[in-house]
Amino acid sequence: MTPSVKGVRKVEGAPLLELDDVKMHFSIKGDGLLSRGAKKVQAVDGVSFTLKEGETLGLVGESGCGKSTTARLITRLLEPTGGQIRFQGVDIAHMKERQLRPYRREIQLIFQDPYSSLNPRHTVGTIIGTALRTHDMVPKTGELKRVQELLEMVGLNPEHYNRYPHEFSGGQRQRIGIARALAARPKVIVADEPVSALDVSIQAQVMNLLENLRSELGIAFVFIAHDLGVVRHFCDRVAVMYLGRVVEEGGRDALYQQPHHPYTQALLSAVPDIGVVRGVPPKTRIRLQGDVPSPVDPPSGCRFRTRCWKAQDICATQDPALFDTAPTLHTACHFAEPPAESIVAAVN
């Protein structure tokens, strides 16, 4: 394990990363001067979860559910409008840049798009070297050696440090992004859709790389993806988000086999599954109507009620909180129950 970094405080016994009722409301321009800032996009509205050392937590949900905003809050590229983000027990939600610097080292981000997240005018050596220099990782003389080590670690040729990003394929570029994140020896990596821009065969290569790094280096991951298969493969625990909230959270097997929230059930049922050919397809399919409502003006009470087939009057008036529904499973629904029959195809 890496020694504690200078400038990073630690509360004994506190979990590695803890989000406590985190909110991010963006102001949007109104029509006139007076209405300016009156409307807010509630991108993230009260998200709480904890991440233990070496654990992987998956965040899934459809576009606009706030999963990428959550990634940007954890890495403090955004300052939340409410709540606490505690790293080893210390709240970093509103920390000033100077104090924050050592924490930035501990929490690194991998981006979705390997094309726009690397500077095309810098060589790979410079890109990774900048991360090393920013965080004072190695003496100047050892920089090149460390860059080459990192390139080798992510499966690239260490002699290619003086090449430019355009000389690499999409999968290789994503590996460069991973090497840059590893340069700081972080305790947490937030990966925002790290494989969704890649072709299937390359996607599996990068997934295996991330998995090896996780088991070798013991890094905790917050893994954001819209592909439920990818998340199931990679994560110990999964949180399902809808309109800025976590609606269900739990251990992987509990969540995929016995989801209690209607939205999780609908999401799983909607995944086009290759298992329908190799196994027994599910008897019924859940199909949601319409689209996700606007986060500017979310529905009252339970936010999913406008598309939910179980919705009653209580759903419009009372906002359900997460409560224990099954071992390791927490669900925010007034009518939480396991599905009557299997949602995905039965493959043996």
Binding site: Q203, A204, M207, R232, F234, L268, I274, G275, R278, V347
Partner: peptide, 12 residues
Amino acid sequence: SIPAVSGTPGPL
């Protein structure tokens, strides 16, 4: 290469 949502998860 495809991690599915059904079946037993295994290495890719």
